[in-house]
Computed example of a mutant assay.
Amino acid sequence: MVAKARSQGNDLFSCGRFAEACAAYGEGLKYDSSNSVLYCNRAICWSKLGQWEQSVEDCNQALKIQTHYTKALLRRAVSNAKLERWAEAVRDYEVLTRELPGDNEFGSIKLQYHHMVFPYPSVKFFKVDVEESLVIAKAESIRSVPTFKIYKNGEKVKEMVRPSHQFLEDSVRTSF
């Protein structure tokens, strides 16, 4: 029953039917509540549905079962970033860097936290070297560098590719 639920969930996910896939993975968890893969798969469904909190919860469950589950760490980092829980997101990215130092995708994650010093003390900037960190580039759908994304209350407000300094500042000002 667990394998059937996982297979059905995978098929539904592939078709973009995320809510149904979520239910299928949940059905499998009724038969095996210690299946970290089902939790992690359901977490990606929650994130596709914009349900970041549920995604984090399922990643937490997966990580309780399998403490070094890199997919769950990555998905939790992305979901926490969407929730503007920057410290938690950075912590997961740093764990991925330590645990997979030779991995081409995770090993070169370089994340730096920056405060914007002009009149926006509550604005936080994270610098990610996505040219060396393919996982983050893929997770954030970044195709061109530099790309700036502004999130407010977990929702993306604006995305800018190669903006001028003035355009970036104006965008921050109007978003907050």
Score class of each variant (00 low, 15 high):
Y31P: 10
D32M: 10
S33D: 11
S33G: 09
S34C: 12
S34H: 13
S34P: 06
N35M: 10
N35E: 10
S36Y: 10
S36R: 02
S36C: 11
S36I: 02
V37L: 12
L38M: 13
L38S: 07
Y39M: 10
Y39A: 08
Y39S: 03
Y39I: 10
Y39F: 15
C40T: 13
C40H: 08
C40K: 03
R42S: 03
A43P: 07
A43H: 05
A43F: 06
I44V: 14
I44D: 10
C45A: 09
C45K: 00
W46V: 02
K48S: 11
L49F: 01
L49C: 04
G50Q: 00
G50Y: 02
Q51I: 06
Q51Y: 07
Q51E: 10
W52P: 03
W52A: 01
S55Y: 02
S55H: 02
S55F: 01
S55K: 01
V56R: 01
V56H: 02
E57V: 09
E57K: 11
D58E: 09
C59N: 03
C59Q: 02
N60P: 11
Q61H: 13
Q61T: 07
Q61K: 13
A62V: 12
A62N: 08
I65Y: 12
I65R: 05
Q66D: 11
Q66W: 09
Q66V: 11
T67R: 08
T67W: 05
H68G: 12
H68Q: 13
H68N: 14
H68E: 14
Y69S: 00
Y69I: 05
T70P: 04
T70W: 05
K71H: 06
K71V: 08
K71F: 07
A72E: 03
A72S: 12
A72H: 00
A72D: 06
L73H: 05
L73M: 11
L74G: 07
R75P: 05
R75W: 01
R76P: 03
R76N: 04
R76C: 09
A77Y: 04
A77W: 00
A77Q: 01
A77M: 01
V78N: 03
V78G: 02
V78A: 01
V78T: 02
V78H: 02
S79N: 00
S79C: 06
S79E: 02
N80I: 05
N80M: 07
N80V: 04
K82C: 10
K82H: 11
K82F: 07
L83K: 02
L83F: 05
E84S: 09
E84K: 04
R85C: 14
W86Y: 12
W86K: 01
A87E: 13
E88Y: 00
A89V: 09
V90E: 08
V90K: 04
R91F: 15
R91H: 15
D92M: 09
Y93M: 15
Y93V: 08
Y93C: 14
Y93G: 06
Y93T: 00
Y93I: 08
Y93N: 03
Y93S: 04
E94T: 07
E94N: 13
V95K: 07
L96H: 00
T97R: 15
T97I: 13
R98L: 13
L100E: 14
L100G: 05
L100Y: 14
P101C: 08
P101N: 05
P101F: 07
P101G: 06
G102Y: 13
D103M: 11
D103C: 13
N104T: 15
N104M: 12
N104D: 14
E105W: 11
E105F: 12
E105D: 15
F106Q: 06
